[in-house]
Amino acid sequence: MSEAAARLPWGSKALALLRVGLSSAVAYRGEFFVWILTTNMPLVMLALWTRVAADGPVGRFGARDFAAYFLGALLVRFLTGSWVVWEMNFAIRDGSLRTRLLRPLHPFLHYAADNLAQIPLRLVVAAPIALALGLVAGPSRLTHDPVQWALLPVTLAGAWALVYCAMLAVATLAFFAESALSVWELWMALGYVLSGYLVPIELLPAGMRAVAAWLPWRYTLALPLDTLLGHVDRAATLRGLAAQLAWTATFLIAARALWTRGLKRYESFGG
């Protein structure tokens, strides 16, 4: 790092990183939007469940509740998703991680900056969905509690951090094994069922519901969603936030440990 750059305050460095990330996201916007479009599972589920609810509500869910739920799921996915597991896996395997290692910033943070810089573009996609959600749900299907509204961004940020740290932990496996991405696929397959992505968790059979409560996935999707739709009270949201934080910390610690060990092996490859 040059003398001048070293003297810059942290805030402006972070800002510069975000600006670089944003311009790269804007440069590849076509690709970005196609990737975003591949997240259409909530719409498929919306079609199924509203069809089911056409003959009468399922539990507390009428057709409109399902529509609100799955539009909300889509929204949460758009806002909290990241691709770091694919990016880092690729970088580790083709060796381009080296260039990131040379920079005076931990790659975990660098990838995070890249990811956070996409937020403006993600908001562009999320805005019409939020609008549709507002129209479908109306005020009666969203939470009325101002405290819950205040907690909502916290749950969203936490969901992003949880997914991001889990991705880091899985991506660092690529130092040791070829099949890190298969592990991530396993995470996704389990998450489809246990996060409330295909079926609202409260409609799952009791056994699966109990399992879901102990596992990380529901804190990546169901927590912000239930908070938004007012399906849970303040105390439940706060408990959820605590669990979310605990899982995030666990994955971050695992990722750090794997990273330190993996990097030693990695350097021995590159010579």
């Binding site: 389990l190 295909l198 799952l204 059979p205």
Partner: peptide
């Protein structure tokens, strides 16, 4: 994952 929603 594909079958769960149907079963529910």
């Amino acid at each position: 994952a594909a079958v769960t929603p149907l079963l529910v």
